[in-house]
Design a protein around this nucleic acid. Structure first.
Length: 256
DNA sequence: ATGGTAGTCTAACTA
């Protein structure tokens, strides 16, 4: 089965891209971030017509996450236990014995900013939640826009994206490592050692044309899924389409 | 060093 993560930066604008990509790739499960839609406006009818079930938790203008899938979801969670917050950034669901958590990690704005401090607190809460989920669901995928580039291979210029920069700072990377230390693996790195493969390019300064990107969209797989993850890719194509999201989909292939 | 773009919404915030 194929599982994907895509920050669509407004599902209202990007629905045609999503529908086209579902047709092309036929993924089984897709986690969306930054839908920027409140729940009554979520296009679940259009996705149902394309053969996909949807669960979602959204808000106007900002944030918003969803899971769309060919199989019906169960046991849906839309808040970090003990960390309820108005910002709609997490959704989890079960598909048989597979558990999927979809995250839109806080951006953080700049190192030292109050939003950065919130990012680190939020990641601590997510850590506790994932530890609990993993104890109950050995077959776990944690996907999303992590807003953290794991290491220097994942940035176009390590001099710019350094230990003091947002998305690459020491504390952010340490928080990601703490998640991985629970028994999760960056699926892309199970299959590729090369640098320069990115999932996000800034709209500004012709970032995509110049390939000034970062790899911040990740799918983490648990120990129990590690051997079943037979492929991990980033599909650059949707980023080449007209009026694209600034992110492009990341995906994995799992065998049962 | 600055500003560059996009989305939501028409002012300013977020990324």
């Amino acid at each position: 089965m194929k599982i994907a993560s895509w920050n669509v930066n407004s599902l209202n604008v990007r629905l045609p891209h999503l529908l086209e990509w579902l047709k092309l790739q036929q993924p089984d499960i897709v986690g969306l971030q930054e839908t920027k839609l409140d729940d009554p406006r979520f296009p679940d009818d259009a996705l149902a017509a394309a053969g996909y079930r949807s669960v979602f938790t959204g808000q106007k203008t900002y944030n918003g996450v969803a899971l769309v899938s060919k199989e019906p979801p169960g046991d849906v969670v839309t808040d970090i236990p003990g960390f309820d917050h108005e910002q709609r950034r997490v959704i989890a669901a079960s598909y048989g014995d597979l558990r999927v958590i979809n995250l839109y990690v806080v951006n953080g704005k700049a190192v030292g900013d109050e939003k950065y401090e919130f990012k680190l607190r939020w990641l601590e809460a997510v850590h506790a939640w994932i530890a609990d989920e993993l104890a109950r669901h050995p077959k776990l995928v944690v996907m999303g826009d992590f807003n953290i580039a794991p290491d220097d291979r994942d940035v176009h210029d390590p001099a710019i994206w350094n230990a003091d920069s947002i998305l690459t700072s020491t504390a952010e990377r340490a928080a990601l490592k703490r998640l991985l230390d629970l028994g999760l693996h960056d699926s892309f790195r199970l299959h590729h050692d090369d640098g320069g493969v990115f999932s996000w390019w800034d709209y500004r300064a012709a970032g995509f044309r110049r390939d000034l990107g970062l790899r911040i969209d990740l799918l983490l797989v648990s120990d129990a899924l590690r051997g079943k993850c037979i492929g991990a890719e980033i599909d650059r194509e949707p980023r080449t389409w007209e009026r694209p999201s600034d992110h492009t989909p990341a995906l994995i292939t799992l065998v049962s």
